[in-house]
Design a protein around this nucleic acid. Structure first.
Lengths: 341, 341
DNA sequence: ATGAAAGCGCTAACAA
DNA sequence: TTGTTAGCGCTTTCAT
């Protein structure tokens, strides 16, 4: 099995020099139409495909966009990757995707590997515990930080206003008359957890309510913890009349706990979940009310920044795009019953 | 902003030749430990990152695995991409991911772009209407066909036994006593549609039942068509007592139609859906019974083939792995009521 | 144990 | 309009 033909092979075939072939394929003005036609025909006939490594080496830069995400099974990151892939495709660029699985060491290895391909731009959703060396490597590259911003790494970023989602959820529930509202969120040692807890507190304070510690469950953002904490809340002597589950994983676990008890929203309790999968819309009972990241907008913002950044160096170097959460009111939230449940 | 240092920069720093630096970093036997230590220190200090293009050009091959999928928002492909990314990560390889969105022209452009990076292996889920030129380009590469096999392209493949899933679904429902079973599937002009319809027919024949044309809806595999066709089936004078929705998209649309009518499975009708998202497990009523692709196994099989193939050329060139669908029995299917519904 | 030199495939500057 | 030459950064002989 012989490897792909090179420019020289085409050149030999046509008895011309290889730079002529290169220019013909690049559609240079200085090449006659007749020659261009001959070259293109020969290229197709021989199955010529350019070698991007050689091109990169000569040009000094690539058309590669690197994307580093913690996960892909999650509908949010899937949508982001799809969107970035679309944008790359339209711009004729390549997307190199790496999945860190939230492991800082793997993340470091992947960043290193990504940089070996000398990408023209990078979109990275770093883990909160990113290694110092990772940050060091990223410094001086065209890198857009996505969702989480590392304090020691500058440059453009695309984030969400973290406390805003929680505020919207609580305000929605209070407006429906709920007073005993359960909150399940990620550990407040994480930035995201701290912000969401703060959002809940702010919203309650504004409504002249105070946070009941017994209705708050904080822990790892896993389906298991969501299941355990919602179970605990529902088994209280005075269970909450409404729940806000503040991450997608926690929401999934929580929904399972609710289903196990054969409870139905909003008949038995109101539920606000996080995320926005297609099935949220047709969950029995009129869909799930949800607080969600504006996925498409976030992905487009990151794409736009990385492509602009990689085009004109230094332009908009400090751009920090911050978007707000969306609240989709659906069937799983309803007016509070007078007597609790 | 200056670009990354090269081997020569490190060499100059240490007053040695650049091949010495190259060998030191590659941990060659012929380099003294003392020199290796000095080189590694300087490399870290200067922030050296190898240039994979230059390496590729010299070596003649890369460690890139190309992956071409139609979609990522779908939980199935998300899981596949995650799995392949894991495998690449473990083998120290790079994954280049392209999303064709089912568009044959975009697919052709993406395959060409992928080949420009001279991947050591390719995993491609081609669209059924793949362009002849796409196939031509792929010929002679280390390419594993995934899920759909193009007749004019040889080489290894990983597929599922398409009619088997339908057969399992129908057998399960018949065993529960159902006789009027609705079937919603992709158009039989597609291979996948033809196979599933055939699976349904075989299973019914085996049970000495025959297919009632009025209970069959065939069309595009979209949520919209799923919604429309399940609506039509439920509005029949004699609606089916059970449904088999044979793709994930059709399932989602169908579930919406069921929810709109405030029907509940399995009380009002039994439902077998396709796919296997996490939420299938805690869908109210005990989860959704589903027919699903063995995602992890499929992805691992493809990874294994592509890595083996790209390691030893020609080995297992014709390997054709075929796996079976899984049936997960959950709460959405139950015994048929005597009088229909 | 290290250095010198060549060359992978391509493009851009300069010649003709 | 086309050909000649050089060099991107790296690895791999071959020489020392």
């Amino acid at each position: 099995m012989k490897s792909r033909p090179t420019l020289k092979d085409i050149a030999a075939e046509l008895n011309v020099s290889h730079p002529t072939v290169s220019r013909a394929l690049a559609d240079h003005d200085s090449i006659s139409d007749e020659m261009k036609a001959k070259v293109r025909e020969a290229a197709r006939r021989l199955g010529y495909v350019a070698n991007s490594s050689a091109r990169m080496l000569r040009r000094g830069h690539t058309d590669v966009i690197g994307l580093l995400l913690p996960d892909l099974t999650n509908e949010f990151y899937g949508a982001v990757a799809t969107r970035v892939a679309d944008d790359c495709s339209h711009q004729g660029r390549q997307m190199v995707l790496s999945i860190s699985a939230g492991d800082p060491d793997r993340e470091l290895a992947l960043v290193r590997a990504l940089l070996e391909s000398r990408p023209s731009g990078l979109i990275v959703a770093l883990s909160p515990q990113a290694r110092a060396e990772t940050i060091e490597l990223l410094r001086g590259t065209s890198c857009v930080q996505f969702l989480v911003v590392h304090p020691r790494l500058g440059g453009p970023s695309v984030t969400v206003e973290d406390s805003g989602g929680a505020r919207q959820a609580i305000e929605h529930l209070v407006k429906l008359g709920h007073r005993r509202i359960g909150f399940v969120g990620p550990s407040p040692t994480l930035h995201i957890g701290e912000a969401r807890l703060r959002g809940v507190q702010q919203a309650l304070k504004q409504q002249a309510l105070k946070l009941d510690d017994r209705l708050v469950q904080l822990g790892p953002s896993t389906a298991e913890f969501g299941h355990a904490s919602v179970s605990a809340l529902l088994d209280l002597p005075q269970p909450p009349t409404a729940l806000y589950l503040s991450t997608a994983q926690l929401s999934h676990g929580g929904l399972r706990a609710i289903a196990e008890r054969r409870l139905q929203a909003p008949r038995d309790l109101s539920v606000v979940v996080a995320g926005n999968a297609p099935w949220y819309e047709f969950w029995p009972g009129g869909g799930l009310t949800s607080i969600t990241l504006p996925m498409a907008e976030l992905a487009d913002a990151a794409s736009a920044l990385v492509m602009r950044k990689s085009a004109r160096r230094g332009a908009a170097a400090g751009a920090a795009v911050q978007l707000a959460f969306d609240l989709f009111v659906r069937g799983s939230t309803g007016p509070a019953k007078k007597s609790g449940r």
